[in-house]
Amino acid sequence: MAALAWLLIPLVAAVGAGLWGSWAGRNRKTAGDGVELAGYTRFREAMERTEVRAEAKEKSHSDAH
Rank of each mutant, 00 (worst) to 15 (best):
A31F: 13
E45D: 15
L37H: 09
E58R: 14
W6T: 04
A56D: 00
G32S: 05
A46V: 00
A46T: 01
H61K: 04
A24H: 01
V15M: 10
E58V: 09
S60L: 08
E48I: 13
G32A: 07
S22F: 09
A24T: 01
F43Y: 14
W6I: 05
A46N: 03
R28W: 05
W20G: 00
M47H: 11
E45H: 10
Y40C: 03
R26H: 10
N27S: 12
P10V: 02
R28H: 04
W6V: 04
A54Q: 10
R53N: 13
S62E: 04
L8T: 05
E36V: 15
A13G: 02
V52G: 06
A38N: 14
R49D: 12
E58L: 11
G21W: 14
G32E: 07
W6Y: 08
R44E: 11
N27T: 15
D33A: 15
V35C: 01
H61D: 05
W6P: 00
K57R: 09
W6F: 12
L7A: 11
A46K: 00
E58M: 10
P10L: 02
T30H: 05
R42S: 09
T30I: 07
A54V: 03
G32D: 09
G32K: 05
L4M: 02
G18P: 03
I9N: 01
G25N: 12
R44Q: 11
L8C: 09
G34C: 07
A24V: 00
K59C: 00
N27W: 15
K59A: 10
D63P: 00
V52L: 13
N27V: 15
A24L: 01
A54F: 07
G25W: 10
G39P: 04
W6M: 06
G34L: 13
H61S: 01
R44I: 15
L37F: 13
T30W: 03
G16R: 10
G39L: 14
E51R: 11
G25T: 09
T30D: 15
M47P: 02
R44K: 15
N27M: 08
G16H: 06
N27E: 10
G34K: 14
F43V: 04
F43H: 11
S60K: 10
H61Q: 02
M47E: 07
R42G: 02
A54W: 06
K29A: 15
K57A: 05
R28P: 00
R49E: 15
V12Q: 02
S62W: 03
R42A: 07
A38S: 14
E48S: 08
L37Y: 12
T50Q: 12
W20N: 03
A3K: 03
S60M: 01
S60I: 01
R53Q: 11
W6S: 08
T50W: 03
E48F: 10
R44L: 12
G34I: 14
M1N: 06
W20M: 08
R53L: 11
A2N: 06
E48V: 14
L19S: 04
P10F: 04
A17E: 02
A5Q: 07
E48Y: 10
A64H: 08
W20C: 02
A64Y: 06
G16Y: 10
E55N: 09
S22W: 13
V12D: 00
